[in-house]
Amino acid sequence: MFTGIIEDIGVVSNLKQEFDNLHITIKSRMAPELKIDQSVAHNGVCLTVVAVNNDEYSVTAIKETLNKTNLGTLKVNDQVNLERAMKLGDRLDGHIVQGHVDQTAVCSHVEEANGSWVFTFNYDAALNNITIEKGSITINGTSLTVINSRKDGFSVAIIPYTYSHTNFNTFKKGTIVNLEFDVLGKYVAKLFEMGKIN
């Protein structure tokens, strides 16, 4: 379980394809504090630490993960948003984030707004994921509030702190991002679909 509050921006230092798996090595200031088997969210994708070496650690993404996220597009030196799993008893500063990406989206517009930024994203509505105005959304692991919600897209407003402490500062038109929709909203939508709520 995660909160969507990014702890560090890691840098991809090595990528190794092995059959359908991608082994990803990340350089991060929090690497020395990690241990093998620990869960870390990478652009919002929960992966297990499999090796730690000084200021670098490695994780493995399988085919299912690569098919549903933007991790397969990573290149050496790319920035990755990182968050360790919550500790029991921590404050929930963002919202409930599982680290299970629902689908990707494409950045369609970036607007500088006199001290903040507005990013607009489009996604495939055929997968039946929804946003609501002022609801929660996780983009590359970052907990954010939806504005301008519509059937196949939405926008978010980014404050300077978030812009400089996440990989949002690398986004441009065409950037592919990971989306995790609000878990409570997903359950409500499923109940409606099953006819359990009228």
Results as ranks from 00 to 15, higher is better:
H100S: 07
H109D: 14
A41H: 03
G153H: 08
T138K: 00
D152F: 01
S164Q: 15
N198C: 02
L82C: 04
Y123P: 07
G185Y: 05
E83W: 01
N140I: 10
K151C: 03
L34R: 04
F121W: 12
D152Q: 09
L92G: 00
V118C: 11
T131Y: 08
K186C: 01
I9Q: 13
M1P: 04
Q79K: 13
V50D: 06
V50S: 08
E7H: 03
S116N: 13
E18K: 12
M30K: 08
N169E: 11
A125L: 07
K172V: 15
G115P: 04
T131E: 06
G185E: 03
A85P: 00
T69N: 06
L34P: 01
G72E: 01
G72A: 04
T25E: 15
E180Y: 09
T120G: 08
N14L: 09
V11T: 15
L47K: 03
M86C: 06
F119W: 09
Q79C: 12
I24V: 12
E83R: 07
Y163L: 14
Q98I: 00
E33V: 10
K27H: 12
D78N: 15
K190D: 11
D93Y: 01
V45Q: 05
T60L: 11
E180I: 01
K196D: 10
T65A: 03
I197F: 00
E180S: 05
D78P: 13
A157I: 07
K63G: 08
T138H: 03
M30A: 06
E64N: 08
I132K: 08
V110L: 14
I139W: 11
K190P: 06
N53K: 15
G44Y: 05
E193Q: 13
E83P: 06
I159Y: 04
I147M: 00
I137N: 01
N21K: 14
H100E: 02
Y163A: 03
Q38F: 12
N167M: 09
T142N: 02
F2A: 06
V156Y: 09
M194R: 13
F119T: 00
L82P: 02
L71P: 07
T166H: 09
S164Y: 14
N21P: 05
Q79P: 10
T69G: 11
N43D: 14
H42V: 01
K63C: 11
N43Y: 12
G4N: 00
Q38S: 11
V146G: 04
L22R: 08
Q103H: 07
A105N: 06
